[in-house]
Design a protein around this nucleic acid. Sequence first.
DNA 1: TATTATTGTTTTATAGATCAAACAAAGTAG
DNA 2: CTACTTTGTTTGATCTATAAAACAATAATA
Lengths: 154, 154
Amino acid sequence: MKAPLPVSLAQEDCLEAVLRLQQAQGAARVRDLSAALGVHKSTVVAMLKRLAAQALITHARYGLVSLTPAGAVIANRTGARHELIREVLVKFLLLEPAAADANACRLEHALDTAAHQRLREAVSLAAARPRLAASWRRALRARLKAGGRGQGSA
Amino acid sequence: MKAPLPVSLAQEDCLEAVLRLQQAQGAARVRDLSAALGVHKSTVVAMLKRLAAQALITHARYGLVSLTPAGAVIANRTGARHELIREVLVKFLLLEPAAADANACRLEHALDTAAHQRLREAVSLAAARPRLAASWRRALRARLKAGGRGQGSA
DNA sequence: TATTATTGTTTTATAGATCAAACAAAGTAG
DNA sequence: CTACTTTGTTTGATCTATAAAACAATAATA
């Protein structure tokens, strides 16, 4: 039970968005997905067709989008990774929540399972060793204040 | 001088591979790129055509591939990010070099400039505070030994 | 040099992601 | 119940990435 199917990044994002919308407002509609993903409605419809063909969602014409069990597995896993990465970026790199989120959107697809696991260990370690974590943050904060213009440079 | 052109991931990888091959063996040929990127020769040729159309490489028929100045800028930047990320994954997450490299290949395209900058700060901070960094590694190593099977689990 | 092997190129095809525009269904006034 | 507005769908394009197969050029060697 390793790789259920090779799902593309865009598809994974779409599944994640469906989950998010379901949680946030009970249901996912094409319009919301279009807004959430920042793509045209027709793009969403095309994507939903592909996802339905892989039995990851169901989609009644002119109706709502739902995740199948298989789709929910992927959506949950992707969502969890997103959260994990966001947390790492905020806690260890002191990125602003918004910036952390934007980066997490892309990073969640780029790490393999082992790397994700390590991030989990890292977060858990930071929780277990709050003073160590605080030392790091303090030192980084000092360094950013010293050398850095706010957040923008290259 | 922010975004020279929106270059796709595959294109960025290709430029990086050209640079690497030039450094490693003086020249980049289609065959090497095909092997390095793990795609068909014809795929490489198609990609080189696109890159040439954007003036990022030059490519003489049946001849060698070279980076233009613009292409070299992208290749160098991408390569530097790759190195940076690999270093972070090895130093802070204690990933094996090979695993770190594989992840860096994908991560290098997924972080924005601000996040890369933070990683640079983090590496530099770790160098400036070796004992802090060592504490972290020691604690993580202990945790991995305690809880974890080698590296594989999910 | 002639033959063979390697390498590079073209052509043809597919699939994903994307948009715009035309169109159709649902929902919301009036 | 019409007319208008919002949503969803289809159709028709484009572009990237990709491969396989046929073909052409280069390189290697006998």
